[in-house]
Write a protein that binds this DNA or RNA. Structure first.
Lengths: 166, 166
DNA sequence: TTGGAAAGTCAACAAGGCTGACATAAAGTC
DNA sequence: GACTTTATGTCAGCCTTGTTGACTTTCCAA
């Protein structure tokens, strides 16, 4: 498919179906790379991607409640619970009863949990760093802009909230 | 975590752990948006994401063999076969015996398959288009550069091959 | 002619989504 | 104080989609 013939061909070239398709495929292939390194580590520990995600956000926002984590991850409580249960039983995550509201459970990584978190995130950062370095600062800015625009509003809110520090 | 104190602080700011983490989270949240619209359509048709992926690449490269598709998708033949079986039985995909090598099966979308493909990819393009438009051409270029750098070499080869037209 | 590649299939299993139902404790409301 | 709502946990069952392993058929190529 060639240019749509829309006015300003050059500047709108990036909106052709062909360009969009390339973006779609880039997302698909890149996401595979994105998860590949942590996946290998998780395998060794008998954990899955779901554990990684929980660990990531508990580390990011220590003391967050179960409800918040459910909302960030976009899964059901039953689904999260299964994962959380093993992490707590294995001593990677601690669940503390809320002080103000005793119904709430606040989640924290234990030292053991923090160790795994660092291992996972460092592996992921290595690849990210290489990609950033290869592409350069301008590209990185664009990368983030497009990704942000691609998020659902609810997800963008979570992202923004985490964005500028806890 | 502040600047590493490395030389050229400003230009290397995008390589801090904090910046890398934001990129990681952006990937996570954006990928959810990326798959959300097709997922809704697939639900209605009683298909899953795996079917979408197969349909996408068969459309992209009509006549590709099962082995190639397995390699592109990065799954086992048993896994692909289950998905492919339903698509063939439902009349969305046609499997033709190879002319030169009769062991090979070449995959094509039927008209019915092409209809669903267009529905799915159009939904995905709508979001992509909006994101591209919001971010602008420069950002899009950067987006693609970073994603490309993030891929595993084997995946990048597939991407490149598809990149410049079939 | 024989070895190996491409494909298909069967069986079994696991991770991680989901829904529905039900239980408990703690808050909040009237 | 009784009632309702919220947060959490848990049991049971289902689905998709990934895995491994075994075995078969077809057929190209050395």
């Amino acid at each position: 498919m060639a240019d749509t013939g829309a006015p300003g061909g050059e500047t709108l070239l990036f909106l052709t179906d062909e360009q969009l398709r390339k973006g779609i495929e880039a997302m698909f292939f890149a996401y595979r790379g994105f998860t590949a390194d942590p996946d290998r580590i998780l395998d060794q520990h008998d954990y899955g991607r779901a554990h990684h995600r929980a660990i990531h956000f508990i580390n990011r926002e220590p003391g967050l409640t179960v409800t918040t984590l459910i909302s960030v991850l976009g899964v059901t409580k039953q689904s999260l619970n299964r994962v959380l249960r093993t992490l707590i039983d294995d001593g990677l995550v601690e669940s503390r009863v809320g002080r103000r509201d005793k119904r709430e459970r606040h989640l924290y990584l234990t030292e053991k949990g923090a160790v795994l978190e660092r291992e996972l995130s460092e592996a992921q950062r290595v690849r990210m760093r290489a990609a950033y370095r290869a592409a350069g600062p301008q590209a990185v800015a664009g990368f983030r802009q497009v990704l942000e625009a691609m998020m659902d509003p609810a997800m963008r809110r979570h992202y923004q909230m985490l964005k500028d520090g806890a």
